[in-house]
């Protein structure tokens, strides 16, 4: 049995699904799981235990409420000293993607980011990850690395029900004071309070078929009925209809929701690369020869301006029932 350290993150005080996935994965693999919770997220310690952590490491300094690369690096260092892990797991969040490569370099360790499947067997750690924005896949393995760091994409691993009878030992870490070169002045909230595209379970995405920016409201209505996050193609981002944070594809976000509804999207190769990992894909397009229909599970050939409002209504009816 090895020790596994899981970098856990919360949203509105609760453990993110992506962190639950990793805690459960570690516990199911028969290893001793340490959860790391920084700043105010420490209140989620019991949840970490319910998902399989045996030890929860917290660092309650208010300076850690907000991500700061230097402070988080120091906290991670302290967590590693305490937990002595052979594997560190984290989700591919904006914080983890910023933090772990620097930690890997500092400690002379290997790191694999963007994992979609993970094998933890004895000392063996194998990660499947997409390359070339999902146009192919490869298996990554580690060499010359005492601790193996894996960043997994959200929604790739199963989550079983939490077991609320499980408890964990909680240890508060001492994190040194630092003279900072990097200061986070403020965090400007995004337009949407919804889950980020990379974490969303349902995505509805629009392309050039919408003809103009104002018509995206039809898509927003569908999204609000489904509790979905809205995505877009590069073409409409470049037109300035929506912000780049909504772009799905090779120069935007790579996503893998359970349900991806592509509306008015023809399916340029660089868009398909970013979303073809979705479990179920629905395509709505007026051109039956659009490449998107090659990737979709279900398709409707039709005019989005009549299909989309009807579909929104139908979902509203069914989901209310």
């Amino acid at each position: 049995m090895n020790n596994i350290l899981v970098f856990c993150e919360t949203q509105n005080g609760h453990l993110k699904r992506s962190s639950q996935e990793l805690l459960q994965k570690g516990a199911k693999s028969g290893h001793k799981v340490f959860a790391l919770l920084l700043g105010s997220s420490s209140t989620a310690a019991p949840e970490c235990a319910h998902h399989g952590a045996k030890v929860v490491l917290t660092a309650k300094s208010p300076a850690l409420d907000q991500y700061n690369s230097e402070l988080y690096l120091a906290a991670l260092d302290a967590a590693c000293e305490t937990s002595n892990p052979s594997v560190i797991l984290a989700a591919t969040s904006s914080s983890a993607k910023d933090l772990f490569p620097r930690f890997a370099a500092k400690k002379n360790l290997g790191l694999v980011s963007d994992g979609i499947a993970l094998t933890l067997q004895g000392d063996e750690v194998l990660v499947t990850k997409p390359l070339y924005a999902g146009k192919c896949f490869a298996q990554a393995s580690f060499e010359n690395s005492q601790i193996k760091i894996v960043l997994m994409r959200p929604n790739q691993l199963p989550v079983d029900h939490a077991n609320s009878s499980l408890t964990a030992e909680v240890t508060d870490l001492q994190v040194p004071q630092l003279d900072l070169s990097t200061i986070v002045k403020e965090v400007v909230k995004g337009a949407s309070e919804k889950l980020d595209l990379t974490e969303a379970n349902i995505i509805v995405a629009g392309g050039r078929g919408f003809k103009e920016a104002a018509n995206f409201k039809l898509l927003n209505e569908l999204a609000s009925v489904l509790g979905a996050t809205v995505g877009a193609t590069r073409a409409v981002v470049d037109e300035g209809w929506v912000s780049h944070s909504m772009q799905v594809g090779q120069t935007g976000k790579t996503v893998a929701p359970t349900l991806y509804i592509a509306v008015g999207i023809s399916g340029a190769i660089q868009h398909l690369a970013g979303m073809s990992g979705s479990k179920v894909i629905v395509a709505i397009n007026n051109d039956p020869s659009a490449p998107i229909f090659q990737k979709a599970t279900y398709g409707i050939v039709g005019d989005l301006f009549s299909v989309l409002p009807a579909l929104t209504e139908e979902f509203r009816k069914i989901l209310k029932a």
Binding site: V184, K185, V187, V188, G190, T198
Partner: peptide
């Protein structure tokens, strides 16, 4: 960062 939010650093 996530959801279109931005950290000013």
């Amino acid at each position: 960062i996530e959801g279109g939010a931005k950290e000013v650093i």
